[in-house]
Amino acid sequence: MSVLTARGVYKTYDGRRWALRGVDLEIGKARIATLLGPNGAGKTTFVRIASTELLPTKGEVEILGVDAVRHPSRVRPLISIIPQEARPISFITVWEAIYSYLLLKGFSRGDAKRMAEWAMERLSLEPYRGTQLFNLSGGLKRRVLVAMALASNASLIFLDEPTVGLDIISRRSVWDALAELRRSGAAILLTTHYVEEAELLSDEVFIIDSGTVIRRGSPKELLSLAPGDAVVEAYGDSLELDEPHVRLGNRYIIYVDSAVAGSLSTELIGRGMTVTARRKALEDAVIYLLGGWRDEGEAEVGSDE
């Protein structure tokens, strides 16, 4: 049974421009699904609708078979959300943050205490139990939020850009926490700008652009949708290419087989260009599928063949 099912979800805030234009997606139990896309693509709008905070203009959202649009109070026991840029209250301790959240979620005091202890142990937060949150680093604060979600025993957890602004060590600690959430059986809907994060964590990635899902699949499947197994990046003003490529300003991302990456690089260096060659990553595939991140300037996808 699917934990989250969305069908034809549309949203407009002003009646003229569409933030979402018919989003369809499904997430199964103990799966991490990631919404990936440029700024303004509609990721946060979708999360707000699915987590019952925002009403869609039209469309259906079901959580464990319950209509989340018409019966939000029936699905709220089943979900937890860590919104974009959420921060825990600063003057309370780590233990108080998790414990009070569980009381608000409807746990008895005994269960709330037990679950708070369990989540702190799982996320290595015990050394900070009595520490007020303003004394913690950004990464630890995020981990506390994830601990709140973990302890809530929700079937579906929404995490909107949980690692934005964190250093790599803190990000890894949050990734470990997310893996723990999945092991606990929860389904997770994650939004992120970090393609590496999506590649590492996700069972399924939904690439969303201009309010609609343009591609979906496992990281491996999406990787295979861009040609070749290697990428040559070259910087130049005007380049005639036979190979499939994306142009981002004066940067060309050229999709080739690794067998020809060396010879192409040599040729381009000979033409006075700065060149790097590497194995194709999910980020390259996403750029290819999106035709370049919108906020990095105009992009052209093409091949001169």
């Binding site: 707000r48 987590s51 905070e53 709220r76 026991p77 860590i82 919104p83 608000l104 979620k105 929404f158």
Partner: peptide, 13 residues
């Protein structure tokens, strides 16, 4: 600032 109210929407409160 804290998005605390948004988190509470997914509770029975």
């Amino acid at each position: 600032e804290l998005k605390f109210q948004n988190m509470l929407i997914a509770t029975p409160l």
